[in-house]
Design a protein around this nucleic acid. Structure first.
Lengths: 274, 274
DNA sequence: AACGTCGTACCGCTATGCGGTACAGTAATT
DNA sequence: AATTACTGTACCGCATAGCGGTACGACGTT
């Protein structure tokens, strides 16, 4: 009893454990751990080895995991990307944001990104960079921490109290020692956001990186947040108030934009596959 | 018995059905069906309603699905994107391809894409377009059919016989009526690929769209394919042989490129979340 | 040769997920 | 206002599916 593997454990007759655990296995891959053995997965998920073996076996049969031919280890199959595609497609609206983002990126000579929350991180789902920058520092899909970034702060400040409570609870569980500090930071962020309409980060994520953040409602119930920032050499601390206002404007414009019909018809012509 | 819900059904003691079904639920969302009720999902997956209710309940608790506040229907949560991120990140190498793709896109005045197989479709994972084109016809993550595109043909031609058999089997199951024709097409594509090193498509996907395709091994065991194409006004039929050779060259260069160290260090600095 | 780790196999037990069927709400019908 | 078709939820007995211990042969490293 007392299944410690999943957060929700109680006596939920309607909770399919096998599914939860399988997804936990999938989610336990990370950019630094893309090849994993059964043992690795067992350790990462906290599940017994034989259980993991069964789950992996299933995932392999379904094609979401494959065995690397040379190392013999397990790896995520690109097919998992197909799970996310409807999400991307449903966020057509983000395409409307792109030109606006590009404009601000050029103006600020930095990077403008759009991200959503996952756990205690923000996942980037769209990004525009100043055309004079060659390197792409943060690719779409990468994560940045919520507690130290302007994007994360804006998100926290803009979400409803229930989710805020959840987030704080998760932080507490994740790192009790830092919890008090994190809570203070986030509350301060909310204060700033309520007053100015955006959040500021001066070297809180990385030294010498400055940014501002502002939230938007992406589609019906999905909250997201923009940020605009870059190295302190390009994005000076003095420029932040200006950029903050512009970013908040961008968010407001985007939110209220009538976008129906602005986009080309869906180019989806694929065979409907299993 | 005779569980018709999953293709693999036999007496596989190590196959976790709940997981397979749960993933089936997730996968049954599509760009045209982003909001679904229990009934819709039951129909789409072929599972009994009560079962779907349990699976959805689980997925909601895990945060992969959320209930739309106003319609009350179920929707994929952007969080599913996080499952795919390690895959994207593991394909660092595709970033090396980008400049080469851009160059060919500019040269051809068309679009160059990179895609991988999922079922009977190819999913685009990277794309460069000629800088004079404003519209983005096919976004990353979208699908194009395998049987009628140069990318799909190249992929089929380049994969191993076992996968070819699988693919054909899947086609047969999917659309028996067209199977003979499809098989003929794919065999012909393979012949062309073996001879020339690329596949040609003249109006087979869309009227007035021409393209060439060539395959590459992306990472260890993952096969992918490039294509280069566009509207017939820009990509003439006469130019295809030239473009084909160039695309095959691109693929070969990419494959053999020593890319270690060409990329910036991984910018992953997020909090490791649950 | 001794160890560690790989993945696979076995197997008894019971908790677990199954899928009928029934029900209380709401929305769009007539 | 009565009807119909939906939503999602709840209940419940049953059988089995999934669990997780433990044991094993195969590599590869030290």
């Amino acid at each position: 009893m007392s299944d410690s593997s999943t957060p929700e454990a109680g006596k939920d007759r309607a909770f399919v454990n096998g599914l939860a655990r399988g997804l936990k296995v999938l989610a336990s891959f990370s950019p630094d751990q893309i090849r994993m053995s059964l043992g690795d997965l067992a350790q990462a998920t906290g599940l017994p080895k034989s259980t993991v073996a069964r789950l992996v076996h299933t995932l392999v049969k379904l094609g979401y995991i494959y065995v690397c031919r040379e190392t013999g280890r397990y790896s995520l199959h690109p097919r998992v990307l197909s799970l996310g595609y409807p999400v991307m497609a449903s966020m057509d609206k983000r395409l409307v944001a792109l030109p606006m983002m590009q404009e601000l990126a050029d103006y600020s000579r930095g990077t403008v990104s759009l991200g959503i929350r996952d756990g205690l991180s923000m996942i980037l789902i769209e990004r525009s960079r100043d055309r004079t920058v060659r390197a792409l520092p943060l690719d779409v899909g990468s994560r940045i921490p919520m507690e130290s970034t302007s994007m994360g702060h804006a998100y926290f400040a803009a979400t409803n109290p229930e989710e805020q409570t959840d987030i704080l609870k998760e932080f507490k569980a994740h790192d009790p020692a830092r919890f008090a500090e994190v809570e203070r930071t986030l509350r301060a962020a909310q204060k700033e956001y309520d007053e100015k309409g955006f959040c500021t980060s001066v070297g809180t994520w990385e030294d010498d990186v400055n940014a501002v953040g502002a939230a938007v409602e992406l589609s019906n119930d999905v909250l997201a947040a923009f940020n605009c920032g870059g190295p302190a050499t390009r994005i000076t601390e003095e420029s932040l108030p200006d950029l903050g206002v512009r970013l908040a404007d961008l968010a407001r414009h985007f939110q209220t934009a009538d976008w129906v019909g602005q986009l080309p018809p869906r180019p989806y012509r694929g065979v409907q596959t299993t």
